[in-house]
């Protein structure tokens, strides 16, 4: 009885390893990141390291607290980093090989931002779109949600 169980366990492991070996496609290519237009809200090294926290903080501030700063929008990321194809059409930023997916595929981290967010900017989406948002913010008087370390980061990286 025990021998049979052992045999079954071993064969299951062997089959799994075989499947892994057969489906293995070699190393994932290093991400290729195209040059973006304009200045980022943070410097590149910091953005690479903290963009997930940054987006998380900022989305709470924008959506729930209604403090819509111009730089705070995911749309801003998209409009700077989106690429055009040979015909001049915009390619969705989460398409294979594009800005978001090239890194995220490499790192093996799934994102579902673009299940809801637009993956290409609207043509009419001009810079300066959110310039008047600060009128409203005084009304909210939310407690500061950014930790001090984070605020220092932001102030250092003003464009």
């Amino acid at each position: 009885m025990r021998a049979r169980a052992l045999a079954i366990a071993i064969s299951v492991v062997v089959v799994l390893l075989a499947v892994l070996w057969l489906t293995h496609r070699g190393p994932v290519p290093r991400p290729l990141i195209a040059q973006a237009r304009g200045h980022c809200v943070l410097n590149t090294a910091r953005m690479r390291r903290i963009h997930m926290m940054w987006l998380r903080q900022v989305r709470t501030r924008v959506v729930r607290d209604g403090m819509a700063l111009r730089a705070d929008r995911l749309t801003r990321c998209v409009s700077c980093h989106v690429q055009k194809n040979a015909q001049g059409h915009l390619i969705p930023i989460d398409a294979p090989g594009q800005f978001c997916s090239s890194c995220h595929v490499y790192a093996g981290v799934k994102i579902d931002c673009f299940a809801c967010h637009a993956a290409v900017p609207e043509p009419a989406f001009a810079p300066g779109y959110f310039s008047r948002a600060h009128h409203i913010q005084a009304a909210f008087r939310q407690p500061q949600i950014l930790p001090r370390r984070f605020k220092a980061l932001l102030s250092r990286a003003a464009p």
Partner: peptide, 15 residues
């Protein structure tokens, strides 16, 4: 499934 959202109005399947 939605894939033609406006940048200012995010909306997605299942919400």
């Amino acid at each position: 499934k939605v894939d033609d959202q406006k940048p200012w109005a995010p909306r997605g399947k299942g919400t």
